[in-house]
Amino acid sequence: MLILSDFRLHRPASLADALLLRAELGDEGAVYAGGTELLLALKMGVLEYEHLIDIKRCPELRGVQQVDGTVRIGAATTHRDLETSPLLARLLPALAELERHVANIRVRAAGTIGGNLAFAEPHADPPAMLTALDARVELAGPAGVRELPVEDFVLGAYETALGDDELVTAVVVPVPPAGVRATYRKLATLERPTVGVAVMGEVAGDTFATAPAVVVGAVDERPLRVDATPLAGASVRDRDALEAVVEAARDLVDPVDDLSGSADYKRHLTGVVTRRALEHIVDPGSPS
């Protein structure tokens, strides 16, 4: 059996107490929620902490709420909670669908959206979609609360803008206006995506009103936005426009050889999955 080394476990009952612990423990303490990433890293010995701060008992950090024109998701909300949230299904169906396909049911039952973002494992589904949706991460610390776009929060592999004395408290996702749709397509060999592509755009018939947001996740260290201007005002059946964006996605990524495939293979897949995502947003019946 893989053995963890000893640590102290703190279980604050409020956000205020959790922040006090963060301020006190700094980089000696890890924030612990679902543990689906952290415990693996601790078991493998790639991370070691003297303190774990379990934030699941802070009621402020759980649940899904509609706030003005946004959906506010508490950081410690599990993937399973999101997969089954009627509010999310109604207001952000593409995100709910993505959540239904994160890893496996055991990971979804334990893992949280805030943990997913804060751990910043590149082979993850939510970051690309949240980037395409223009979502923001809410951070609390001694100096108060600040918000960052998801794409400015995730800096690289396992690297974020989170301070040692801060906590991710929520993910705030604007509800897209009527007529704007989103989708996420991925190819996963094991339980993590090899390539995931999120698209958000205003579609009428088979035509994009403006250039859609196209974001490639899991290939590079952080989600990448693809320039999709060739599709502004164009039909998805306009092969030249579509292939120009597919080509832009392939050119943008900088894959490396790893267990999910060679760099060439991943570059090729980036094009395939980008094409599928763009076709899927226009025609949800298209093959995935």
Binding site: G35, T36, L39, L40, K43, I105, R106, V107, A109, A110
Partner: peptide, 8 residues
């Protein structure tokens, strides 16, 4: 709900 007892 099912969980992985190995990683809980």
């Amino acid at each position: 709900l099912p969980v992985s007892a190995c990683t809980t």
